[in-house]
Design a protein around this nucleic acid. Structure first.
Length: 270
DNA sequence: AACGCGCCCTGTCCGC
DNA sequence: TGCGGACAGGGCGCGT
């Protein structure tokens, strides 16, 4: 479900809503959502203050003293902050009771998401294994170009591998390649310097715009208040098989790469 | 080492 | 209206 813009939107919401709040007590309702020991997770997240909230790749990182609560939303995960008295949603996975009687809830229909509690050093080690943040200064066209040299993989699935560049998933990979006018089927190592620069710019552009619109909701995504994102109508190719290309009018095509749907304009993206 | 594939799980939609 | 199959914003572990 959620790619960088959706996770970033939730992180900003949570920062506004629950920074400085205290988790009184944690209740895990679906143990398979927790990586590691469930009892330990409940204990170590109870009676803790939320010191800060950050995003790394598609993970929400909640700082509780020296510990880090890492939330990965998988496909259908949601983090919702509820006022006292609001009815709890179905498919509730974890309930964090806050000291002011609000609740921070983790809900997940498909349960592909994971909540992990790590020490700061454990988290740092894990974070180091992830790729570059696409909206950071470390992400340059040259950096992208050099990374592509190593791989025969098609550029679209290549872009979605979180070991290289993080945060780009199935929607924004298709959207960025459309904007860059590069075929999703082109092998990464055949990407030219010029194309790498176009992909770099397109990734930054589309992610930034999507954050401005509070993410893309196809079906499941919601922000921390339960509201959908506004970027869906601005998708140029994703989920638009057969519709006219916004640039040239020829029909958008859908293909499958690495088991995931790819949408592109065969005329604009050579 | 790199890469493709199957799998985790539930809900929804489409064709028959 | 019912039923089977395909598919859905992700990521991990396996085998080659």
């Amino acid at each position: 479900m959620p790619e960088l813009p959706e996770v970033e939107t939730i992180v900003r919401d949570l920062r506004r809503l629950v920074s400085g709040a205290t988790i009184l007590r944690t209740a895990v309702l679906r143990p398979d959502l927790i990586a590691g020991d469930v009892h330990d997770f409940e204990e170590r997240t109870s009676a803790r203050t939320i010191d800060r909230i950050d995003r790394r790749a598609k993970n929400i990182v909640i700082t509780l003293g020296d510990d880090r609560l890492i939330i990965n939303l998988g496909m259908t995960g949601r983090v919702l902050v509820q006022a006292p008295g609001e009815p709890e949603p179905t498919h509730l996975g974890v309930r964090f009771e806050l000291s002011d009687e609000r609740r921070m809830l983790y809900q997940d229909v498909r349960r592909f998401g994971r909540l992990t509690l790590l020490s700061d050093t454990e988290w740092e080690a894990r974070s180091e294994r992830l790729g570059v943040e696409p909206l950071s200064a470390d992400f340059t066209a040259e950096h992208l170009y050099r990374l592509t040299r190593q791989s025969r993989m098609a550029i679209k699935p290549w872009m979605m591998d979180q070991k290289r560049v993080v945060g780009v998933g199935n929607i924004y990979a298709s959207e960025a390649l459309f904007r860059a006018r590069v075929s999703p089927r082109k092998a990464a190592r055949r990407i030219t310097r010029r194309e790498a620069a176009a992909i770099h710019d397109a990734v930054q552009e589309v992610l930034t715009e999507a954050i401005d619109f509070r993410g893309t909701t196809l079906a499941d995504y919601r922000d921390a208040s339960g509201d959908p994102g506004g970027f869906s109508l601005r998708l140029a190719v994703y989920d638009r098989e057969g519709e006219p290309c916004p640039s040239c009018g020829s029909p958008i095509r859908k293909i499958v790469q690495a088991g995931r749907s790819t949408f592109f304009c065969p005329k604009c993206q050579k």
